[in-house]
Nucleic acid binder design. Structure first.
Lengths: 320, 320
DNA sequence: GTGAAAGCGCTAACAT
DNA sequence: ATGTTAGCGCTTTCAC
């Protein structure tokens, strides 16, 4: 076994609680003793066992973040921002990937639940019911999924989708395909609702589809045959896959068919033709989700009070 | 506080040890009792506390994976493969991002050290000395960094770099730039050694550079003025940034200058012009790193034995 | 097959 | 300022 608090205590003739305090409340211990303890700890290579600590304090100092697919360029900016926000509040952020699998998602939440103080769950694929149960286990914040009673950060993708449809309509497209995302995706539902509700444009829905390049490639055949002149895709990856698939079939973009993605990912920026897309404030979402999470974890939000000096107070009678 | 083993024990008139056994050694408990315990646990929503469990068992069931930059498309395939390998052996994989910061890297290893059973450290930026100290704390496997006494998975990037240089030489390029990576990167050293050691080609080294698109953009001016006709870049991202920077300056790729990346990332595949690049077996590396880690963690590797039947055995004398 | 009890490494009252 | 002690939730001998 590794070196424990007891070994350090032994080594410098002091008691375990003093060693403990040296690490968790340094100002409570005599400077000279502290130096001795620190020296001994250093020399023995002592490292506080965070798991044991969390057992008594109930805090781990970690946050978890769960995404459906790390390889989706939508997530890294969100994760990086979340990470920065976590560090700023002295938390470590652990990330996990569910591979779009609801069962794995549930499993990961449970695995995290005793090792982190809270979880940011991005674009969950679990049902509301399952999420509700999990929410009793550990504080979490949802990203891109709205749910009663659970703190949530959503991006107004419906607005973005409407803008995209207006753009297509403005260009003169009258028959447009919506290539939707995976089942269980809240975002996909939002996009669909917004996109099918467009006056003057007939919208044909294709889906559900995997939210990946492959998903786009796979649906290209149907789109080519659908007699549409414009497409709104679930995300940039799908849009890119679709474009590749269409061009393989000799359908030119945007010559024959216009395609719009969603996310404004790096991948979309670097693709040629440069992708028209709906920008999502992913970094903001990551940062806000962590801030929200940390705030929701503190038992009570403490609001400042301040003294209001009116007329009921005065210097004591008879003072100079 | 959450529901504990004791609550469950109470609820079904059994003792804590029985409940414990129900979860960690089910075959040791009477089927009927087990059913009762399981029912009570389910009903109360009991979940074993893994942190507490790890305190007595010394195992957490988690692995950690640390990368320099999640947003680098080099990593997701590696991470996904590592994740799959971890799941296959019943581990959860937690990922963290150091933001290219050695101090953060050290911090994360320490944060992980008591919550995971082992760590995969990808392209570490820490010094050998610092890594050596950390290696005493917790088992780890290094990816893309060679170090004595520590299990390692490296990709033969030197070979790839040589091939790339040969390709340029074969095309007739005689003066080539090497756009190197960040300080502390083992890979960058390997590439540099291989690329500068090329007979018949004069190699000018530029760097260190940030291993990002920005890093490539930033060095474009120098490359444009360097009088080179070919470039080998530290990775695809740098190559892409460089191409953008060059084209902004009116330098055409590959018309005026040829550029090669390293990694064969999705991003490079989707970029136009399609990037010539050195493919790296990232998924293999991720999978192997995890396998190696798990194997190195088990105190002893157990090899199968099998019975060899020759002629020294026979049925007992007198049997039918 | 199940109960009792010790202890994993640490913190947090409470004493002194 | 430091020592004492009782747990945190769980596993694991050792008895019964």
């Amino acid at each position: 076994m590794a070196v424990t608090i007891r070994d350090v205590a032994h080594a410098c003739g002091v008691h375990v609680s003093t060693v403990s305090r040296t690490f968790s409340a340094p100002q409570m211990v005599n400077a000279e003793t502290r130096t001795r303890v620190l020296a001994a700890a250093e020399q023995l290579g002592y490292r506080p066992n965070r798991a044991a600590r969390s057992l008594t304090t109930g805090r781990t100092g970690n946050l978890g973040l769960i995404v459906a697919d790390l390889a989706n360029p939508f997530f890294p900016p969100l994760i990086k921002a979340a990470q920065a926000a976590a560090r700023a509040q002295d938390y470590h952020l652990f990330v996990a990937d569910t591979d779009e699998d609801p069962a794995e998602e549930q499993d990961l939440v449970l695995a995290f639940s005793k090792q982190v103080d809270g979880i940011v769950l991005c674009s969950p694929r679990l049902s509301n019911k399952a999420l509700g149960k999990l929410a009793e286990t550990i504080p979490f914040v949802l990203v891109n999924r709205r749910m009663r009673g659970v703190p949530t950060v959503v991006m107004d993708v419906a607005h973005g989708a409407r803008t995209a449809m207006e753009h297509l309509a403005g260009l003169g497209h009258r028959r447009v395909a919506l290539v939707s995302g995976p089942a269980g995706s809240w975002t996909s539902g939002e996009i669909r609702r917004a996109a099918t509700d467009m006056p003057g444009v007939e919208t044909v829905v294709f889906g559900p589809n995997a939210p990946t390049e492959q998903g786009g490639v796979a649906v290209a055949g149907q789109i080519a045959d659908a007699g549409v002149t414009g497409v709104l895709a679930y995300n940039d990856l799908v849009a890119i896959g679709l474009i590749e698939g269409l061009e393989q079939r000799g359908v030119r973009v945007p010559g024959d068919v216009s395609v719009i993605g969603i996310d404004d990912s790096v991948t979309g920026r670097l693709h040629r033709p440069k992708l028209t897309t709906v920008a999502m404030p992913t970094a903001d979402a990551g940062r806000m989700a962590v801030d929200l999470l940390v705030r929701s974890m503190s038992a009570a939000t403490v609001l400042d009070t301040h003294l209001v000096v009116r007329e009921s107070t005065a210097p004591p009678k008879g003072s100079p």
